[in-house]
């Protein structure tokens, strides 16, 4: 019996709300949520990640007030100026303020991340759970399709889709989403397969629950945690892919201030004007690192066994 420890509650700081007996389902859920938040907050790196993400959101929301210049205003007399008190991160080859472009660029980054996540998550989750729950022919067909997607290197496949759909921000989002869902579906399916044979699913069936009710009421809530963690960890690679597409000129089109495209444009001037690539490069790195740290912290809370 290795579980003696859990038999006797250890000392914990008293928090009135957490220590009182829940009197409704909502309250029980909130208590559970708070305990999770508490665990998350005790992880310093994860909190750092979350802070950066919150900062990113704030910057995107208040871009017009934070930016010092119009991000698209060209001023050739000011071209390629190094960082100064007027242009904090310097200016690019058209004399546009890089700081302001980075600030507005956060909107583009968030737009891509959000759009990809809200399409990939539900699609992957539903396809994976349905396929895992029913098994048989449905499962075989769906899994062969995901095999097909997973057989290509992600970026190559994305490039192919963009080539078909044509360059542009929306097309880039669509292409990233198209290549992203199979991984999520695989994960959800694997989880479903183990949950499917558990006694609590058998009990649900014995109560007369329909397959749909079991999938949505019992299986998805359990799969959700690992899918959320995977999505969060995947956001970093979404940002990198989007930047990569921008860099290759297949993502956001000029003059949209997209970080990858900015890095690409600055490449020609890299030797003389280092700030052109450095600023957006650092922005990409910091934000993807933040999503990774946040995802790791989330995993410790939602999915402690895979630590």
């Amino acid at each position: 019996m290795s579980a003696q420890a859990s038999e006797v509650p250890a000392k914990r700081k008293k928090v009135a709300f957490l220590d009182r007996e829940a009197t409704s389902v909502t309250e029980a859920f909130l208590q559970r949520l708070l305990v999770g938040v508490h665990t998350f907050l005790s992880n310093g790196l994860a909190v750092a990640g979350l802070s950066i993400i919150l900062l990113l959101i704030a910057v995107a929301a208040f871009a017009p007030w934070i930016a010092t210049h119009d991000p698209n205003l060209q001023n050739l007399s000011m071209a390629l100026k190094p960082p100064s008190s007027v242009n904090w991160f310097g200016t690019d080859e058209y004399g546009r303020d890089i700081f302001s472009r980075i600030v507005y660029g956060s909107r583009v980054t968030l737009y891509i991340v959000t759009l990809v996540t809200i399409t990939v998550g539900p699609i992957g989750l539903i396809v994976g759970t349905v396929s895992g729950y029913y098994g048989g022919t449905v499962d075989m067909i769906v899994m062969r399709i995901t095999d097909l997607f997973l057989a290509f290197p992600g970026l190559i496949l994305t490039l192919t889709f963009v080539a078909i759909l044509g360059p542009g921000l929306e097309q880039a989002v669509l292409a990233i989403a198209l290549t992203g869902w199979p991984a999520i579906a695989r994960l959800a399916r694997a989880e479903t397969m183990t949950i499917r044979s558990s006694d609590y699913i058998a009990a649900a069936r014995l109560q007369g629950a329909s397959s749909l009710r079991i999938i949505f009421g019992s299986i998805i809530p359990v799969c959700m945690s690992s899918v959320i963690v995977r999505l969060t960890l995947g956001m970093a690679s979404v940002i990198l892919t989007a930047a990569g597409l921008g860099f290759l000129g297949l993502g956001a089109q000029p003059p949209t201030p997209e970080w990858g495209a900015m890095t690409s444009a600055g490449r020609e001037y890299m030797l003389d004007s280092w700030w052109l690539v450095t600023a957006p490069g650092v922005a990409i790195m910091v934000v993807s690192l933040a999503f990774n740290l946040f995802g790791d912290g989330l995993r410790d809370v939602l999915d402690p066994k895979s630590k």
């Binding site: 029980a28 006694d199 058998a202």
Partner: peptide, 22 residues
């Protein structure tokens, strides 16, 4: 279902981990 019900062996595996008693 209304006639026959079942109780399983493992009390740790037979309750949904994310559902309250209610």
């Amino acid at each position: 279902c209304r006639k026959i019900q079942m109780v399983f062996q493992d009390p740790y595996g037979s309750l949904h981990p994310k559902h309250t008693v209610q």
